[in-house]
Design a protein around this nucleic acid. Structure first.
Length: 212
DNA sequence: GACCAGGTCCTTG
DNA sequence: CAAGGACATGGT
């Protein structure tokens, strides 16, 4: 996972950028919506999470304070479509409780250091590495690279093995520490994986299939 | 009808 | 630590 992996990653990133250019992804109206979406999207198709977000908005529940003060039953009814709705309601409320009670609101998160926030998010039951990094990178504009199922898939195709921390480190070593860059690269990986990548391991399939 | 989706937690070996 | 089950709805 050292020199040659970094080279592969570098190549993949530059190829994807050439193919897709700048793409805008995960547009949300506010940080709250991204935090909520990050939990709802766990192990679920994005379209299903999106439907729940629409319902939450309709009912004025799409904010961290609203999640915090609403009854579980109210949230559950609104997020059914994203699956695991009881579990996710508990996770949303645990997350909202942490933000509201320990920090005093989403805006107050800005005053804390990225590593400290990550550590605190990870200690909330239901927030794992991917959700924590999604919140940091997408909602709070912090340079914390997100590794998701798509990224794992692409890396496997490219012959790069590694656990969450290993892959995260790899991308962060190769890229400038900039949240916007991390989001762009992550978006490219997802875009490509959605369109092509299968289950089998396929060394250098990226390069061949992208007609470089 | 089977199988999988932008995970995480808990329990076992 | 690695592996396997639980959580649940919606699309192919």
């Amino acid at each position: 996972m050292s020199a040659s992996s970094s080279g592969n990653i570098d190549l993949i990133i530059s190829i994807l950028f050439r193919v897709y250019g700048e793409i805008d992804w995960w547009n949300a109206e506010c940080a709250d919506e991204i935090i909520i979406g990050a939990v709802l999207a766990q192990a679920t198709r994005w379209e299903n999470a999106e439907r729940s977000l629409a319902v939450l908005k309709e009912r004025n529940l799409c904010s961290i304070p609203a999640i915090h003060t609403s009854d579980p039953e109210t949230i559950e009814a609104a997020v059914k479509s994203s699956g695991y709705y009881r579990l996710k309601t508990a996770r949303l409320k645990a997350c909202a409780a942490c933000i509201m009670e320990e920090f005093g609101g989403v805006e107050a998160l800005a005053g804390h250091e990225t590593g400290q926030l990550r550590k605190r998010f990870l200690s909330v039951k239901g927030i794992g590495e991917e959700t924590a990094d999604s919140i940091l990178c997408y909602a709070l504009d912090r340079p914390s690279f997100v590794i998701d199922a798509f990224t794992h898939k692409i890396c496997t195709c490219a012959g790069i093995e590694g656990n969450y921390g290993g892959l995260k480190r790899l991308f962060e070593e190769v890229l400038p520490a900039d949240a916007g860059t991390y989001r762009q690269v992550h978006a490219h990986l997802v875009e490509y994986a959605k369109g092509y990548c299968g289950k089998r391991r396929c060394q250098e399939c990226l390069i061949r299939n992208l007609n470089v």
